[in-house]
């Protein structure tokens, strides 16, 4: 299937979705480098997990449906899976961050290694 038989509106919409998805993922990962501590960095990751992935999935549904000439929405599976699992990882990491930080400060109040 070649690229040059999709209508103009799908071309425009798919391009917009892909560009915004890529940009959001990039900004989210940039947050990993720019934000000051662990807890703040987690917010940056959520950016790519939610709307960055969502935009790319929508673009994939759109383009695949036009190529197959019927409504293909298998990508909904990934969306459902990510909605139900990515909060689990984040909450577990959050709680372990809180727990280990507290364990650190109880042992030695002035810890030089922890730069957070």
């Amino acid at each position: 299937m070649t690229m040059d038989e999709i209508p103009f509106w799908a071309d425009l919409l798919g391009s917009l979705l892909l560009i915004s998805g890529g940009l959001l993922t990039l900004i989210g990962s940039l947050g990993l480098l720019r934000l000051p501590n662990l807890f703040a960095r987690m917010h940056g990751v959520t950016l790519g997990n939610t709307l960055g992935l969502g935009c790319v999935l929508l673009a994939s549904i759109l383009i695949a449906s036009i190529h197959a000439e019927r409504f293909v929405f298998q990508e909904v599976l990934i969306t459902l899976f990510m909605i139900s699992t990515s909060p689990v990882t984040t909450i577990l990491l959050m709680r372990s961050g809180i727990y280990r930080k507290r364990a650190d400060t109880e042992k030695e109040p002035v810890s030089g290694q922890d730069t957070n």
């Binding site: 690229m3 040059d4 999709i6 103009f8 071309d11 425009l12 798919g14 391009s15 917009l16 892909l18 560009i19 998805g21 890529g22 940009l23 993922t25 990039l26 790319v56 383009i63």
Partner: peptide, 14 residues
């Protein structure tokens, strides 16, 4: 209509 390939390249680089 050559917009989509460009968008795909952009997204891949990003």
């Amino acid at each position: 209509n050559g917009m989509l390939p460009w968008a795909i390249s952009f997204a891949l680089i990003a």
